[in-house]
Structures are given as C-alpha cells and as structure tokens.
C-alpha cells in the first residue's frame, strides 16, 4: 500500500515559541538527535532496499550467475529479453491479468461499497465477510482455489454439472489457466478496495445528496454527478495501487500452477520469471534486467496515471 498524494516536508511553523531552539548550540543538539533518530531506519532502508535497487540496475548489465566472475555484458540481457519467449509470455500474461483484475475488482468493489453505504442493517457483518480474503495468506488462497477448481472432486464443477453446464478443466486446460487465476485475484482484492471506497463514500457530506434530491435528480444521475466525482480520489488511489499489485503477480501463479511447466506456459508472470531466472536458473543478470523492466513499467504507468488523474479526479 502506498501513499500517492504527497505533501512536501513541512516548513517549520514560524510563530511558535522556540526559545530552546534559537541558540546555535540548541540547533546543533537538535541536529545530532535528529540524525540519531533517523539513523537506524535509514541503515535498514539503505542496506536492504535502496542500495540493492541500485545494484539490481548494475547487475542487469552483467552476466553474473551469483558465484563465478562477473563480466560486463552491456545491453545483452535486455536484448535477450526481446527474443525471450518466456519473458514475452510472462509480460503478456501479467498485462492481461492487470487488464482484467483491475477494472473488474474495482468495479465490483465500488458496487459493494455503494450498496453497503446505503445504510442497511448488517453493514458491519457484510464488511467483515468481504474483507476476510484480504487477511488470508495468498498461498492458502491459491491452495483453497486449486481444490475448488479440481475438475473431478471440486465443488465448482460439481455445481456446474448439477446445472447441466459445461465443466471446464479450469487450471489444467491451458485456455483457462490464466482466467482461473484472474478470478482468484479479483475475489481476493474486492474486500481491500471496498474498504477504501467505503471510507471515501462516508466522507461525502450528506448535504450534497439532499441538494440533489431537492433538485429532483434521480438515483443514477446522483450517482454519476455526485457520488462518482466525489469518490474519484479514493478510486484513483485504489486503481493505482491495484495496477501496481497486479503487475507484481507471483504467489498465486506459484501455488496454483505448482511449478507444472505446461500450466506455467499459459500463466507465468513477470515476477515468476524473475524468480525462476534468479533462483532456479541462477542467471542473476537476466533476472535483474527483468526486474528493472518491471520497475520501469510500473513507474511509467504510475506517472501516466498521475498525469491522467487531472482529467477525472476531483479533489
């Protein structure tokens, strides 16, 4: 989860009495304490996040296997990606996954949030149930759904059979593997989006709706003219974070394909590829190049969304 709207660091409030700080000695003391306060966190962040991210970029220009000597490889790793069939597939699957999961999960979450906000009895109960998948570990989610999808003993096909509907081999039919994973992704994300959107809805002043109803606006008109625009900051946040997390798809692919090469060829994701290149095939250079590409795409999409928000987000 990330904050999108960022405030610049505060300028110190000018008027407050600052007797203790005015003296040069006081300022020096304050400075050293401040450094002491930020130091532990910045050591951890620097050593395990910032420097590794920079190192990733560097490693992506080498042919390192993590053990033997490092050779500079120029743009080779990136050039290879262009013709790498697995990476192409991973990119396509990840793109399709985000393309399906983001709009559908956000759309359904909006629907649920709006319905919940209507002030029914049992709101807290519904909210709880919708939220449970969010606190459930993704490997367990993957395992449960793998069992639900089981074509012979699973309840989904049993129900479809009962209704005399076609019973696809969900995960093991390469046409449906990715779709099956998308369904799980949507199912697992709705609760999270719903909570944020519900908070956004509850922040809309009731007087807006009263004014609309006095003006004789219908339900649909009220929704599109009042609810949606005023909800747009929350929607923007949900869409942006949802795009980022969809592009980082990994756990579900890992568990639901169980590493089966046939299933993977129709469901591998970019992060799965990074994992496989780096930790199964020990090609740190290619793995890093892929991670860098993923980062670049996420950054680009986030920037594009920040630009586009001016057109549809009303603060």
């Amino acid at each position: 989860m990330r904050e999108i709207q960022i405030r610049a660091p505060e300028a110190a409030p000018a008027a407050a009495p600052r007797a203790a700080r005015r003296t040069p000695r006081g300022r020096t003391v304050e400075m050293w304490w401040a450094y002491a306060f930020v130091l532990p966190a910045f050591i951890v962040l620097g050593v395990f996040h910032l420097l590794p991210a920079a190192a990733s970029l560097a490693i992506s220009f080498t042919d390192w296997d993590g053990l033997s000597e490092i050779h500079f490889a120029g743009w080779d790793n990136y050039a290879v990606l262009l013709s790498d069939d697995n990476f192409g597939k991973a990119g396509l699957h990840t793109f399709l996954y985000a393309l399906a999961v983001v709009p559908i999960s956000v759309g359904l979450a909006t629907l649920v949030a709006v319905l919940l906000n209507a002030g029914l009895k049992g709101q807290a109960f519904y909210r709880t149930v919708y939220f449970i998948p969010v606190v459930t570990m993704s490997t367990a989610v993957g395992l449960i759904w793998k069992w639900l999808y089981n074509s012979e003993y699973g309840p989904i096909n049993a129900a479809l059979g009962f209704l005399h509907l076609p019973q696809p081999n969900w995960l093991s039919d390469s046409r449906y593997t990715l779709v099956s994973i998308m369904i799980v992704g949507i199912w697992a994300a709705i609760g999270h989006h719903m909570i944020i959107l519900l908070a956004g809805l509850q922040g809309i002043p009731q007087s807006f709706y009263e004014a609309a109803s006095i003006d004789g606006a219908g339900k649909l008109r009220t929704f599109f003219r009042i609810t949606l625009p005023l909800l747009s900051p929350s929607l923007f946040f949900v869409v942006t974070t949802s795009v980022i997390s969809s592009l980082q798809l990994f756990d579900l692919v890992f568990v639901m394909t169980g590493g089966n090469p046939a299933l993977l060829s129709s469901a591998r994701s970019v992060v799965f590829n990074v994992y496989e290149e780096g930790f199964v095939l020990f090609r740190m250079g290619t793995a890093s190049a892929q991670a860098v590409v993923l980062f670049a795409v996420i950054l680009l999409l986030t920037v594009v969304q920040l630009k586009l928000q001016k057109r549809w987000v009303h603060y």
């Binding site: 993590g66 780096g278 991670a291």
Partner: peptide, 15 residues
C-alpha cells in the same frame, strides 16, 4: 524508496 517495487531489490538483497 516507497516507490520501489520489492522485486527490484530482491536479487541483490539475496546476494
């Protein structure tokens, strides 16, 4: 740092 996806630091952190 907040904008960095975790995967980008995964390999060097591992090393």
């Amino acid at each position: 740092v907040m904008m960095l996806p975790h995967q980008i630091s995964l390999i060097p952190t591992f090393l």
